[in-house]
Amino acid sequence: MAEDRPGIVSAVSQAVLKLDGNIVALSQTVLNDYFTIILIADFPEKVSAEQLRECVENAGSSGEFSVMSRPYQPSSTSSRFSSAESTQYMLTATGTDRKGIIHQISQSLATKGINILDIATYLEADKFILVAQIVVPSDINVRCLQDELSAIGVSKNISINLQHIDIFKATNRI
């Protein structure tokens, strides 16, 4: 993590290369001028997690980068949580911002074993916008889930919709 500026990806990837590493996957995002990056890389066995952390940290100016490094093991449960597109839904919520909206929605999802693949929230003027891509296990009744989310919406005075991802493909992709 760091304050955003040109050259961060270049500096981090150079540090990885310096340790003879190969980047397998990388995701980067900037939120309100604050830069974050997460990456998976292969290294020779002699490279430790601590060595990598230091090397990347030193790629920035003093105290610029906050870095965390840990060994990566592919999860055996990942398929259930990321699973087929047939169970992917888009959850959208819009309305006046107030405390606890994200928590209440995510708690409702978590108690049902519904995984969030991707989530983003924004504030436009005073309007709160939440967009989340989620995986609804096939044993969950979508109608009940929609009703429950709507009830949360009513209690927080926001509009919550849950729609299968295919409707967004149909309307937005050639």
Partner: peptide
């Protein structure tokens, strides 16, 4: 948001609801 932009998602929702 995955393969969609937030604008695309909200546009679709708006088309239906508004």
């Amino acid at each position: 948001m995955g393969v969609f932009t937030t604008e695309e998602i909200l546009r679709t929702v708006e088309m239906i609801h508004k």
